[in-house]
């Protein structure tokens, strides 16, 4: 089982994943958790800090604090995505983003689509320096990717668990989708309700529940089977976006941790694949 935690993965994969994750975090704070930004203007008495925020003794958010966190996320993300100061800049982004997320979740509503992203931000700095062309197999890189993969799968599996804990076995044959479609009207959603096809909603609910319970399988698949599972979940997120206006992008983006991302780098430069020696530490540190 120890070997399973440490697959020797090329460091370039971590380099590309850093670009993807830090790039996405920019988008996330500007678009998806901009609620946190609005919160800075919300009535102060509505700030109800979650446990971790209380334990850390975080001060009540102010616009100045919000701008400071944004600055760290933007600057740190740009530095770390480019492969510089991966530990220091990465750790700064992880702390600032976690703080940002704690603010976003401290006004009476907690979202669950950020787990994998938060885990990715925490583990990516642990890999240290990783160049885009650095194909050195590194078990520490493998561990970081494994952690993100586990967090992605946990998001689904634990969602199924929560459904059983809170909704019970009646969840899948209940009206949760109708509930959601009624409250978050979209064009597709209204069409679905107008068509009056309750069996389709039940079918969707059962498929979701079963797929969520089976999701850990992705940790043990490779190649086409893994690609098929990833495609299923990305398709699922697309459907929920179109019908319910729920995008779950912070989780969806972390599926990248399952892909051989280093291949994206090789195809870009149109030079002969000569064994270029890239700067870096000597092997066998």
């Amino acid at each position: 089982m120890t070997a399973w935690w440490f697959p020797p993965v090329p460091r370039a994969r971590v380099a590309v994943l850093r670009a993807v994750i830090y790039g996405f975090v920019w988008l996330d704070v500007l678009i998806f958790t901009r609620g946190a930004f609005m919160h800075l203007h919300a009535p102060a008495e509505f700030y109800r800090p979650v446990l971790l925020a209380r334990l850390l003794g975080l001060p009540a958010p102010t616009p100045a604090l919000g701008f400071a966190l944004l600055a760290v996320i933007f600057l740190g993300g740009a530095v770390a995505a480019g492969g510089r100061l991966p530990r220091v800049a990465g750790l700064a982004v992880a702390c600032a983003y976690l703080w940002w997320a704690l603010i976003a979740m401290s006004y009476g509503k907690v979202d669950h689509d950020h787990l994998a992203l938060i885990v990715a931000l925490i583990v990516l700095p642990t890999v240290g320096r990783a160049g885009f062309r650095d194909r050195t197999p590194d078990p520490a890189a493998g561990w970081a990717l494994r952690c993100v993969q586990i967090a992605v799968v946990a998001t689904y599996f634990l969602a199924a668990w929560a459904k059983m804990r809170m909704g019970g076995w009646g969840w899948a044959s209940g009206e949760i989708l109708q509930w959601a479609l009624t409250r978050r009207p979209t064009l597709t959603g209204e069409l679905l309700l107008a068509l009056d096809v309750p069996w389709l909603l039940y079918l969707f609910q059962w498929v979701v529940l079963i797929a969520e319970f089976l999701s850990p399988v992705a940790l043990f698949l490779r190649g086409r089977a893994l690609a098929a599972v990833a495609a299923f979940w990305l398709g699922f997120h697309l459907v929920t976006y179109l019908t319910l206006d729920i995008h779950f992008l912070p989780t969806a983006i972390c599926w990248a941790a399952f892909a051989p991302l280093e291949r994206l780098v090789r195809t870009v430069p149109a030079v002969a694949p000569a064994p270029v020696q890239v700067r870096g530490r000597a092997p066998g540190r």
Binding site: A101, V110, H114, R165
Partner: peptide, 21 residues
Amino acid sequence: DDHFPAGPMAQYAFAVPSTGG
């Protein structure tokens, strides 16, 4: 929910009964 980010994945986890919901 208070235990974010380690709380249960509780979004849409409650049941809405077909009758009486």
